[in-house]
Design a protein around this nucleic acid. Structure first.
Lengths: 240, 240
DNA sequence: CAGTGGTCTAGACCACTGA
DNA sequence: CAGTGGTCTAGACCACTGA
């Protein structure tokens, strides 16, 4: 059984929907008809259709039947790989150059810091991501000491990169990323080794583990040397 | 049957994994044990575990068992809503201000244009997206006439916005988005009404319908007035 | 109220792979 | 080679809802 039958049924209809042979609103055969056509039990047909439902390709209504879903094309999958691996994949050497770190209480009144701290202190880090020795991004990071207690003996955190260290020690389960463009301040331009007021891509990310805040990070990428790429295919979702 | 049993089993383990009670690498009970614990058939247990597998929360290996997955947190869902609706949701008025349009052959040697054209002509559009009458983004767009034949009588395409018109007439099934930061050229700055060499967020998108290229669009957003936001939750995928 | 999907059962045979 | 998951069967009862 190289290709399970339910998988074949699923991909049959996926292909027909993506090619447009089955257009939004079109009705699919009922499960009984599919059982006869593929010569299988109802559970097998149902498994295939459940996968299409989870992928958002079809809608199912009792008594009415199964229909090709109207596309709700408004979300894409954004690849946010680990920066060190991403740089190495481009064939460049990666290095993290620490600028400094310290432990401090959250700034009173700064709601985001207070929430991140969760009653404890914040561990603050600043450093540069270098590709082939050249600054690619300036990183400012806050870590909740309450959520990551062993941040204290952070001997190794700056040896690799804070992001990689955290992902290994305290993987997050939820994240929010904000992307914007801005001009580097004179100080930021100096650290990145770029002309003053150059356009930079600013990536801010907040991560959670369950309901606990883990970290806030702000990465400032040199505008002309970094792009973010996002892809969307209707086959995302349950397919992988 | 308000809450199906397979759904209860799934959410039981999802909660334990997200809370950290079950850590990456931990082993889950085997299907036989779960059948006894929940007093149900193996297919019911299997359905619950299949959903967790599709969501990427667990790994399953024959003979070895079922384990909490090591997080591979490197993709996020990026909301790319329709610009007019997005602006209206912010309580602002939206308007598209056409700068010009024409039909022309693809530039020879420009591989991306040739592929987009697919043997036909290109319909080229330029215009401004205005929020409350103020320029928010400068849009340059190419549309494949072969893929969208009725672009000829484009009386209404500039009445709403080219993006909304296309989504309604030729919904895409696949897309790639590239996000970068750059300084506006003097001409772009003039059109957007911003100081020269201001940082702008540049969003480029290529879309497909099946294997046909549909459109290429480049939107230049005024840096300090637009952010892109992406969210990731481990429960994406098969859960919804 | 009849057609359709949602869920579940109690089995079965097999493929894979690690103890 | 035995334990585990992958797939499938041939039924069943029920909930929902639109003809």
């Amino acid at each position: 059984m190289r290709q399970p039958l339910h998988e074949r049924i699923r991909s049959d209809f996926e292909a027909r929907i993506l090619s447009g042979a089955l257009a939004p609103g079109d009705r699919l055969p009922i499960e009984q008809e599919l059982m006869q056509h593929y010569g299988c039990a109802r559970m097998t047909v149902n498994k295939a259709l459940s996968a299409l439902l989870a992928a958002g390709l079809i809608d199912r209504r009792k008594r009415a039947g199964t229909f090709v879903a109207r596309p709700r094309m408004h979300s894409m999958v954004l690849d946010v790989p680990d920066l060190p691996s991403q740089i190495r994949e481009r064939g460049q050497t990666y290095a993290y150059e620490p600028i400094g770190h310290r432990s401090r209480p959250p700034m009173p009144g700064v709601e985001d810091e207070v929430q991140l701290a969760g009653g404890g202190d914040l561990f603050e880090l600043e450093g540069l991501h270098l590709a082939d020795g050249i600054p690619l991004a300036l990183e400012f990071r806050l870590i909740s000491v309450a959520a990551v207690p062993d941040i204290g003996d952070a001997a190794d955190i700056e040896a690799i990169s804070p992001g990689s260290w955290l992902l290994k020690h305290v993987p997050w389960t939820e994240a929010e990323t904000r992307i914007s463009a801005l001009d580097a301040t004179p100080e930021e331009a100096r650290l990145l080794g770029i002309p003053q007021r150059s356009a930079c891509l600013c990536v801010e990310r907040r991560t959670w583990r369950g309901s606990d805040r883990i970290t806030y990070v702000r990465q400032l990428f040199v505008g002309n040397s970094y792009d973010l790429v996002a892809r969307f295919g209707a086959t995302n979702g349950a397919t992988r």
